[in-house]
Design a protein around this nucleic acid. Structure first.
Length: 959
RNA sequence: GGGCGGGUAGCUCAGCGGUAGAGCGCUGGCCUUACAAGCCGGAUGUCGCAGGUUCAAGCCCUGUCCCGCCUACCA
C-alpha cells in the first residue's frame, strides 16, 4: 500500500462486525497525499503559527525497526496534533548518507563478488554506492508510510544532495577561517577494520571483558651480576605486544622499592634500544601491579601524555590494518593478536616472563565493525568544541531550549562540560570530501572550491579524507532549509517558537548536542525550542534487540501479521528454525501464547501501543500482548461507531454546528459532554507536555469506560419507543437531544483519537455525520478543545457518580449471589437525602434497566428489611445509600448454602496447598516469611467466610 | 572511578504528600440483537530494605542492597 496514491474508495455501505485493519488502512494514505494534508507552506504571506519538527534522518542502509516505529509514531502524533490545531506544521523528512555504515554495506557486497573497493578505485566505488542508493535507499521512508507518517515528503532531503553539500563545505570553510577547524598530529582512535580514524563517541567501551595482566622483566643495563631485585624491573601489562613501542618505564618517585633504579637504563629484549627508567607521580599508582609501568607513547592515551611530559620518543609499531610494522623487529608483519601471543612466548623463552593473572578490563570497540580500536598517532582534522559547547550549555540553562524529560539536562551538561576536540576526518570514500588541497611542500589551502593556482600540475592534491557523517547531520535544521541561502523556508522554519527535536536519547551527544552547537554558531539562535527524548525499544524481558540474541522484531510483521517461522528467520538469519524459535519465544513470553504467528494488529494498534509509554521510560519493553489489547480497542471503536451510526440513521447532520450542543437538558447528555470536556483538556495538556501516554490513556479510558460502558448503555432505552430493544426509534425531545449529543461525541472522539490512530478514525469519520464546516479529511482538524466541544458541569459529574455507585452495588449483589442475569430481582434504594432522592427518582427506570429490575423502588432508610433480601450500603457524596435486592424466588436456600460451601472449600484447598508446601520442604520451624504470611491470610479468609456462612444461613432460612 | 535512572498486583508499566491504579493474566457468571477482539462481577500488593521528616509518605530526606544505562586513559 505504501506508494498507493489512488483516491479513497467510497466507503462500503455497511460495516463488518469485526474491524479489519489492513483493509481500512490501505484505503487512506493515498487520499491524504492527494488532499495535500501533509504539506507545509513557506509562503511569507501565510499567517498561521508555525510548527517544525525535523525528522532524524534514518540511514540510507536502514529498514524500519522498532526504534524507527517509535520515533515515527511520536513525531507523527506531535505533527498531526499541531496541524489539527491550525499550525502550518512542517515535519521535515530526510535520509542520512551514513558514512561508515553505508560504505561497509557496499564493501560487503563487493566482497561477495571477490573484489575490494581498491579494485574499483575511488570514483567507480562511489559511483557504485550512488547506484545502490538509487535502488534501495529510502526503503524506510516507504515503510514509514505504512505507519501513517505525515511528513511533507516534497521536502525530503538527503545529506549528500548538492545543496546540502554546499552547506557542509560552507560550514567547514567558515569554521576553518574562524580557527575552529585545524589539523593536528595526535593520538586518535583507529579502527583497523574500517581503516579510519574515529571520534571518541564512535568508540564503544565493552565493560567487564576478561583479560589478563601479564608481567615481564626488563633487565637493567650493566647490572648483570647485581643482587636480586637490582638487576631487573618487572612491569605489568594487558597488551604485551605494545612493549615493542616502549620508550620508558615509569615508577613512582616516592616508591622506595625502585629508588635505586631512577635514571637507570633498561635493555629492550627484542629491539636495539635502551629504555630509561623515569619517575612520574601522575601515571603511576604504586599499589597497582608491580608499581612499574611500561610507557608506550604511540599506543596508549596515558602513555602519550606521559611521553609529552618527559619528551619521550613516540614509536608507532602498527600498520593501518593492525599488523606490526618494521618497528616490530622480529614480529613485523604479524597481526596484533598473533603478535601478542608471539611476544609472550618469546619473553618466556628468554626467561623474562614473570607470570600473569586474570584481569577484568574495558575494551574499546568500533561502533560499526565491533573490532578492537587501537590508539594511533595520526594527522587528522579536528574541530575545537569548547566555545561552542559553552554556548550550547548556556542556551539550555537560560531556557531558550528546553530538554524533556528534564533529567537529561544533567547528562547534556556533563557531556558538553567535558567535551574534547572532535576528530572530524575519516579515511573513507563515501561522504563529504574535505575542501582542502595539499601543496607540494606541505602547505594546505582550505577553500569553497579548488583555488585556481592549486593545480595538479603544480603538485597540489585534493585532501582525500571525508567528514564524519555527523558533521553534516549537525547542520540538518538549517541545511535542509536552504542555508547558506536566505530562503523563505529558512526564514519561516528555522526554530519558530513552536519547534521540537524529537529523538532517542542514544544520539543526544552524536546529533542533538552538535545541532545545538552548530545552530548557535551559524544561525546565532538555537535550532529548536524543545528537545524531546524517548527511550529504547527492547524485548519483552528488557534485553536490547540484537541479531545475536535473535529478538529483533520487524514492525511490519506486527502490523500485517506474520508466521513465527517468517519472523524468526529475520530475527536470527541462518540459524536452525527450532533454535531461533526458542530464543524468540524466550524473549517474548506473551507471543508464545499466540499460536503459530502474529495476527495483523494494524498500524493504529501499533502506534497506540508505542504512544502509551511515558518518555521517562528508558527501556520500552515491547509486549505483543499489549499490542493485542490495543487492537481490541480499535475493534471497540469500530463497533461503538456501528452502534451509533445505527442510532443515527436519518439524522440531520446540519444540526451539528461544530460546537457542543447548547442548552442540553438530559442528565446523561450533560454528563457525557462534561466528561468529554475534561478528557479533551487532559489530552491537549498531555500532548503539549510531551506526555503522549497521558493523552493515549485518557482517551482510551474515556471512549471505552465512559462512552461505551455507560453512555451508550444508558441511552439505549431512551432511543427506543417505550425503552424496548426491538421498538422503533423514539421521537421524544429527549431522544432527539440524545442523538444530537451522541453524534457530536462520536465525531469529537474520532478527532480526539486521530493523531494516535489516524486510519480507523479517518475511516469512521468519513461515514459519520459531521458539521458542514469540516474539510475533506479529519486530518485537517480541528483538534477538539474543551471549551468548544465540551460543556463543563461539575455538579452532573458528582451526581453521575452516585448513580453509578447504586447501579454497581446492585449488580454486585446479584453477581455475588449468582442470580440469573435475565431474572428480574426486586430492587429498593433507600436514602433520606432530599437531593439524592430527587436525583435517583428521576433515574430509577434507567437503574432498573441496567440491573434488570422491573419495578425499582425508592424508600426512606430504616424500614424493615423484607425477608429474602440482601443489603449493601454505599458511601456517596450524599451520605450512605442503602441498596436492597430481593432474592426470594431467584435463589434457593440450597443454592445459597452450596455457594457458601464452595467458597469455603476453595479457601480450604488453598490453605491445604500452602500447608503442604510448608511441611514438604521441611521448614516447619523456620518457614519463609511469605509462606507464613500466606497461611495466615488464608486462615483469616476462612474465618471470614465462616462468618458469612452464618449470615447466609439467615438469608437461606428466609428464602 | 564518576554520573544518571530504576526496584509498586503473576507479567508490562502508570502514580511522586492525603483512603493503592491500568492493560494483560487469574477467577465466578453471562452467546443480553454494537462488539465473546465482548458484557457484568471478584481475588490479588507489609509500593527493594532500614531509619528519619510530617497530622499524613510508594511519593520528601539519610543510609543500604540489587538491576540497568551513560561516562572515564588505572598499566
Amino acid at each position: 500500500m505504501s506508494t498507493d496514491t489512488s483516491p479513497a474508495t467510497p466507503p462500503a455501505p455497511t460495516l463488518d462486525k469485526a474491524y479489519e485493519p489492513r483493509e481500512v488502512e490501505e484505503r487512506w494514505y493515498g487520499f491524504w497525499e492527494k488532499e495535500g494534508v501533509f504539506e507545509a507552506t513557506d509562503d511569507p504571506k501565510d499567517t498561521r503559527p508555525v510548527y517544525v519538527c525535523p525528522m532524524p534522518p534514518p540511514n540510507v542502509t536502514g529498514s524500519l525497526h522498532m526504534g524507527h516505529a517509535l520515533m515515527t509514531t511520536l513525531e507523527d502524533v506531535l505533527t498531526r496534533w499541531h496541524r489539527m490545531r491550525g499550525f502550518n506544521a512542517l515535519w521535515l523528512p530526510g535520509i542520512d548518507h551514513a558514512g561508515i555504515a553505508t560504505q561497509t554495506v557496499v564493501e560487503r557486497q563487493l566482497a561477495r563478488e571477490g573484489k575490494t573497493r581498491h579494485d574499483l578505485g575511488r570514483d567507480a566505488f562511489v559511483e557504485r554506492i550512488w547506484t545502490w542508493k538509487a535502488e534501495s535507499g529510502g526503503t524506510i521512508t516507504k515503510q514509514q508510510r505504512v505507519l501513517g507518517a505525515s511528513p511533507d515528503w516534497r521536502r525530503t532531503k538527503f545529506t549528500m544532495d548538492p545543496d546540502l553539500s554546499v552547506a557542509v563545505t560552507e560550514a567547514f570553510v567558515r569554521l576553518h577561517e574562524d580557527g575552529l577547524i585545524y589539523r593536528a598530529t595526535r593520538l586518535i582512535n583507529w579502527c583497523p577494520d574500517c581503516r579510519t580514524a574515529l571520534s571518541d563517541l564512535e568508540v564503544e567501551n565493552e565493560e567487564g571483558a576478561n583479560g589478563e595482566l601479564f608481567q615481564f622483566a626488563y633487565k637493567v643495563e650493566g647490572h648483570e651480576g647485581a643482587p636480586e631485585g637490582e638487576h631487573e624491573l618487572v612491569v605489568a601489562t594487558t597488551r604485551p605486544e605494545t612493549m615493542l613501542g616502549d620508550t620508558a618505564v615509569a615508577v613512582h618517585p616516592d616508591d622506595p622499592r625502585y629508588k635505586h633504579l631512577h635514571g637507570k637504563k633498561l635493555v629492550h629484549p627484542f629491539v636495539d634500544r635502551l629504555v630509561p627508567v623515569i619517575t612520574d607521580a601522575i601515571l603511576v599508582d604504586p599499589k597497582f601491579g608491580t608499581g612499574a609501568v611500561k610507557v608506550t607513547p604511540a599506543h596508549d592515551f596515558n602513555d602519550f601524555a606521559t611521553g609529552k611530559r618527559h619528551g619521550l620518543e613516540e614509536i608507532n609499531i602498527l600498520n593501518l590494518d593492525g599488523t606490526l610494522n618494521d618497528q616490530g623487529g622480529p614480529f613485523a608483519g604479524l597481526d596484533r593478536k598473533k603478535a601478542r601471543t608471539a611476544v609472550k612466548k618469546a619473553l618466556d623463552e628468554k626467561g623474562l616472563a614473570r607470570g600473569s593473572k586474570p584481569h577484568v578490563l574495558t575494551l574499546p570497540r568500533c561502533q560499526r565493525s565491533n573490532t578492537i580500536v587501537e590508539p594511533m598517532i595520526s594527522t587528522q582534522w579536528f574541530c575545537k568544541m569548547k566555545g561552542m559547547a559553552d554556548e550550547a550549555i548556556k542556551a539550555v540553562k537560560d531556557g531558550r531550549t528546553k530538554i524533556i524529560p528534564e533529567e537529561w539536562e544533567k547528562t547534556y551538561d556533563h557531556f558538553l562540560e567535558n567535551i574534547q576536540d572532535w576528530c572530524i576526518s575519516r579515511q573513507l570514500w563515501w561522504g563529504h570530501q574535505i575542501p582542502a588541497w595539499h601543496g607540494p611542500s606541505g602547505e594546505i589551502r582550505v577553500a569553497r572550491t579548488r583555488p585556481p593556482e592549486c593545480t595538479e600540475e603544480a603538485g597540489w592534491k585534493a585532501d582525500p579524507d571525508v567528514l564524519d557523517t555527523w558533521f553534516s547531520s549537525g547542520l540538518w535544521p538549517f541545511s535542509t532549509l536552504g542555508w547558506p541561502t536566505e530562503t523563505d523556508a529558512l526564514k519561516k522554519f528555522y526554530a519558530p517558537p513552536s519547534s521540537d527535536l524529537e529523538t532517542g536519547y542514544d544520539i543526544l551527544f552524536f546529533w542533538v548536542a552538535r545541532m545545538m552547537m552548530f545552530g548557535l554558531y551559524f544561525m546565532k539562535d538555537v535550532p529548536f525550542r524543545r528537545i524531546l527524548l524517548h527511550g529504547l525499544v527492547v524485548d519483552e524481558t528488557g534485553d536490547k534487540m540484537s541479531k545475536v540474541k535473535g529478538n529483533v522484531i520487524d514492525p511490519l510483521d506486527l502490523i500485517y501479521g506474520a508466521d513465527f517461522k517468517q519472523v524468526v528467520a529475520k530475527a536470527l538469519p541462518g540459524a536452525p528454525e527450532q533454535e531461533a524459535l526458542t530464543k524468540f519465544k524466550k524473549a517474548y513470553p506473551s507471543a508464545a501464547a499466540m499460536g503459530s504467528g502474529f495476527p495483523a494488529f494494524g498500524a493504529d494498534a501499533m502506534r497506540f501501543t508505542l504512544s502509551t509509554f511515558p518518555p521517562s521510560n528508558k527501556r520500552i519493553a515491547l509486549a505483543p500482548k499489549r499490542i493485542e489489547g490495543y487492537r481490541h480497542f480499535a475493534n471497540k471503536i469500530w463497533n461503538a461507531s456501528r452502534l451509533v451510526l445505527g442510532h443515527l440513521e436519518g439524522f440531520d447532520a446540519s444540526k451539528l454546528t461544530g460546537k457542543a450542543p447548547a442548552n442540553v437538558q438530559g442528565f446523561y447528555n450533560r454528563w457525557i459532554l462534561a466528561q468529554l470536556g475534561k478528557t479533551i483538556a487532559i489530552c491537549n495538556a498531555g500532548v503539549d507536555a510531551f506526555r503522549i501516554d497521558e493523552a493515549a490513556n485518557e482517551s482510551y479510558r474515556f471512549f471505552w469506560n465512559d462512552f461505551c460502558d455507560w453512555y451508550l448503555e444508558v441511552t439505549k432505552p431512551i432511543l427506543r419507543e417505550g425503552g424496548a430493544y426491538d421498538a422503533p426509534p423514539a421521537k421524544t425531545p429527549e431522544a432527539e437531544e440524545t442523538r444530537l449529543v451522541m453524534a457530536h461525541v462520536l465525531e469529537t472522539s474520532l478527532r480526539l483519537l486521530h493523531p494516535l490512530m489516524p486510519y480507523i478514525t479517518e475511516e469512521l469519520w468519513q461515514r459519520a455525520p459531521r458539521p458542514s464546516s469540516r474539510r475533506s479529511s479529519i486530518a485537517f482538524g480541528p483538534y477538539p478543545m474543551p471549551e468548544i466541544d465540551g460543556v463543563p458541569d461539575d455538579a452532573v459529574l458528582r451526581e453521575f457518580d452516585v448513580f453509578k455507585a447504586v447501579v454497581s452495588a446492585a449488580r454486585s449483589i446479584r453477581s455475588e449471589h449468582e442470580v440469573k442475569p435475565a431474572a428480574d430481582a426486586p430492587l429498593v434504594v433507600r436514602t433520606d437525602n432530599e437531593e439524592a432522592k430527587k436525583l435517583l427518582a428521576e433515574r430509577l427506570s434507567t437503574i432498573g434497566f441496567l440491573v434488570r429490575s422491573k419495578a425499582p423502588a425508592l424508600e426512606k432508610p430504616g424500614g424493615p428489611r423484607a425477608a429474602g433480601t440482601t443489603t449493601s450500603v454505599v458511601p456517596t457524596a450524599y451520605g450512605p445509600i442503602e441498596v436492597l435486592v430481593g432474592l426470594k424466588g431467584l435463589v434457593t436456600k440450597e443454592e445459597e448454602l452450596a455457594r457458601i460451601d464452595r467458597e469455603i472449600k476453595r479457601i480450604e484447598k488453598d490453605l491445604a496447598a500452602v500447608e503442604k508446601k510448608l511441611s514438604s520442604k521441611g521448614f516447619t520451624d523456620r518457614a519463609p516469611k511469605e509462606v507464613v504470611e500466606e497461611t495466615l491470610a488464608l486462615q483469616t479468609q476462612l474465618k471470614e467466610a465462616r462468618t458469612r456462612l452464618d449470615e447466609s444461613r439467615t438469608l437461606a432460612e428466609e428464602l
